[in-house]
């Protein structure tokens, strides 16, 4: 019996270990090693920090890196602010069938590929697009307006694309908050804002954190939305990685960029978990 159990254990352990080591851990170590080498001749390399120095010394790279981080944080905050009232409405204001339907309606757009959603915004925002025509028809502007290819367009796209990943965890945590607790808050003389601050937000914290982590990650790693809504020169960090790998064929520098992106996302996720006293197992698992 014991040997049978041991055998079963190792049979189940093998796929997990193979998957994590061959597809996650070793490739990342390898990417790190590639980022640490410098080409000194045809097929000749030496160990150096040259790629990271290039990253730090070239203002365009560093600026793009910081810009991507800041805009991703901003997109996360905007998504949170828009999603919170909606999630509260779905979790607390409506019940039964209507609740299920509204929740489902939130999910529907995200069954469709990000490409389609971004394409939709392109049709809406471009010079010959729906919004531009609507504004002209309403007499608010005199000629066509181009609303694509700027940071606001990128932001709209990012927030739209990540909305679901904020709404779902928020609804789940808010649903578990007992109405009686909110009522007790009012009975004890609390006002709307103070109850929001003292009761609702602390209770929703795990949902806020996991939603924010996912939205931040998705924005940071997004390539499609900045590229399509922001145009060729939208200065998003993933575009630098792509161009080093695919266009310039400079894998060493591209790997260094990839590693910087990985560090940035890990540091911010770790910081967010630290600040709020959550763990990865609790927020993701």
């Amino acid at each position: 019996m014991r040997t049978e159990l041991r055998l079963g254990f190792f049979l189940l352990l093998t796929p997990l270990v193979l998957w994590l080591s061959l597809l996650i851990i070793i490739p990342h170590i390898d990417m790190f090693l590639v980022s640490l080498r410098e080409r000194i001749g045809v097929g000749k390399y030496q160990l150096s920090l040259a790629n990271y120095l290039t990253f730090l010394e070239e203002p365009l790279y560093l600026w793009t890196f910081l810009r991507t981080a800041l805009m991703s944080i901003m997109a996360t905050l905007i998504t949170l602010v828009i999603a919170f009232p909606v999630s509260f409405y779905i979790a607390k204001m409506v019940k039964g069938r209507l609740q299920a339907v509204l929740f489902l309606l939130c999910l529907v757009p995200f069954w469709v590929s990000e490409l389609v959603r971004t394409f939709g915004w392109m049709i809406l925002l471009r010079e010959t697009g729906v919004i531009s025509n609507f504004l002209q028809w309403a007499g608010l502007v005199s000629g066509p307006v181009e609303m694509l290819y700027n940071d606001v367009a990128i932001m709209i796209g990012l927030v739209y694309t990540s909305m679901l990943f904020m709404v779902v965890p928020l609804v789940t945590t808010l649903e578990s908050l007992d109405d009686a607790v909110i009522e007790a808050g009012y009975d004890l003389g609390g006002s709307g804002p103070s109850i929001l601050r003292e009761i609702i937000i602390p209770h929703a914290m795990p949902g806020i954190v996991s939603g924010s982590i996912v939205v931040f990650m998705l924005s940071l790693g997004n390539y499609l939305t900045p590229r399509i809504l922001g145009g060729k020169d939208s200065l998003w960090f993933t575009e630098l990685i792509y161009s080093q790998f695919i266009v310039r064929f400079n894998w060493e520098l591209g790997a260094a960029f990839g590693f910087m992106l990985l560090i940035l996302s890990s540091v911010i996720v770790w910081g967010m978990l630290r600040l709020t006293g959550q763990t990865l197992e609790k927020t993701m698992g």
């Binding site: 996650i24 490739p27 990342h28 390898d30 990417m31 982590i213 996912v214 990650m217 940071l220 790693g221 390539y223 993933t238 990685i241 792509y242 790998f245 591209g254 790997a255 990839g258 992106l261 990985l262 996302s265 890990s266 996720v269 990865l280 993701m284």
Partner: peptide
């Protein structure tokens, strides 16, 4: 889940 997709791809 917390590794950007593009980094998974290049690694």
């Amino acid at each position: 889940l917390v590794v950007p997709g593009i980094v998974l791809g290049i690694s």
